[in-house]
Amino acid sequence: MNSNDVNQKIGKLLIYVTLIFMAFVSLLPLYWVFSTSLQLPSYQNETMEEPINYVESAPPKLYPVGIKEYIHQWQEREAAEDSGDKEDAAYHDEKMDEVITKTFEGFVVLFERTKILKWLFNSLYISILTTLAIVLIDTMSGYVLAKKNFPGKKIIFWAIISTMMIPEQVTLVPTFMMVQELQLFNTHWALIFPSLALAFGVFLMRQFLLAIPNELIEAAKIDGASEWKIFWTIIVPLAKPAMAVLGIFTFVLMWNSFLWPIIVLNDENLLTLPAGLKTLQDANLASFKLLMTGATVAAIPMIVFFLLFQRYFVKGLSMGGVKQ
């Protein structure tokens, strides 16, 4: 082995170490959410003089203590059983149950006392409904803008595209007033309708569909297919990859949207997850265990969603970035 090889190996190792450290740092907050949600609150076993709250303790416990305590109690119980001390074994058995109960206590409280399931459902159906609607109407308009020639096309296209960079806040107040004019305040339509105005999807679909050969459409026309049929049988199947990308980004956008829901919704039964989590935190007396449990419940669907559709995320981002 020559020195060059060794250098390269060391270099590669260094790169891995750096990256793993960075990945560790970036995933730490998420870990901390999960860890705190499973942390043992006020608990006392046979060796402790008084109960300890491991959630709010200094120094903080870096992992859910319940795991270790469960193993400890289990070993104690085995030992007690071996020595035939039934009473002691029963005590440790009870403690094992207590550890389990207290570890997952946050979830029980969360589901029983808060509306989190409702918020979860609201977020889910609003995001899905909006995503479907956006994908449909943006594919329709993207198709027309890519493949048809008609008066006003240029103006319409540029009018839509030029709003892409305008931050949400600029239209916050007038959109609110519009929502009020249409009497949508404190309804889910107030979240869904304004999202359907977003420009990004039209741009994405048009760019994608520009690349589809005209001959396909022409051939279908000669066969006497109606426009609607052409759209469904030719355009939609071809546009699927872009539709998937658009759908995924719309879903994430809707799922995470925060500023707008906290303005137009107030009934706690109508809130979406992020807005609901804010009310959890605002209700000052909630423990950090409960807050982090709420955060866990809110984070998991998105993590699963990401892991399932990872390649579309990558594809979508690359599409936006590479095409300069």
């Binding site: 960075m22 907050p29 998420l30 994430v252 799922w255 995470n256 997850l273 992020p274 984070a299 998105m302």
Partner: peptide
């Protein structure tokens, strides 16, 4: 590296 960024900012801010 991407996972933490799909998580809602509300959750990140809370933690």
């Amino acid at each position: 590296f991407y996972l933490p960024t799909v998580t809602s900012m509300v959750i990140i801010a809370m933690v």
